[in-house]
């Protein structure tokens, strides 16, 4: 378990947006996709995914439609709306800037301070 990290608060939304940006997915699919793209490094409490999904739908960033899953079950598929796509871009930019800044700060050498 030690090689898995708790996700930072607020980043779950970003991960979900990223996961569905590649195509419509149902809830469990999103979970698998996040595990896959993070190579199993991120630990999500599975149930926590759903309140986040409902919130994103309400914010108009995702839309949900009922369809049929790969194993022929009726499932609710989520996909990005235009607003969601825009938000994902902004969040990614913000995240990258933050990550670069923090990375730079943490790797700073004493003489640079």
């Amino acid at each position: 378990m030690s090689d898995q990290a708790q996700i930072l608060p607020g980043t779950l939304d970003l991960l979900i947006l990223k996961a569905v940006s590649l195509g419509p997915l149902h809830g469990y699919g999103i979970l698998l996709r996040i595990e896959q793209i993070s190579r199993g490094a991120l630990l999500i409490e599975q149930g926590a995914l759903y309140p986040a999904l409902f919130r994103l739908v309400r914010q108009g960033l995702l839309k949900a439609n009922w369809g049929t899953s790969e194993n022929n079950r009726r499932a609710k598929f989520y996909e990005l709306t235009a607003a969601g796509r825009k938000r994902l871009r902004e969040e990614l930019d913000g995240w990258n800037r933050l990550a670069t800044a923090i990375g730079a700060a943490l790797s700073a050498k004493p003489e640079e301070a």
Binding site: H26, G27, R74
Partner: peptide, 16 residues
């Protein structure tokens, strides 16, 4: 009931 169905599907998929 839709909420119920969605969450159950998740658990069923996982169990599979």
């Amino acid at each position: 009931s839709e909420l119920e169905e969605e969450l159950r599907l998740h658990i069923a998929d996982r169990a599979d």
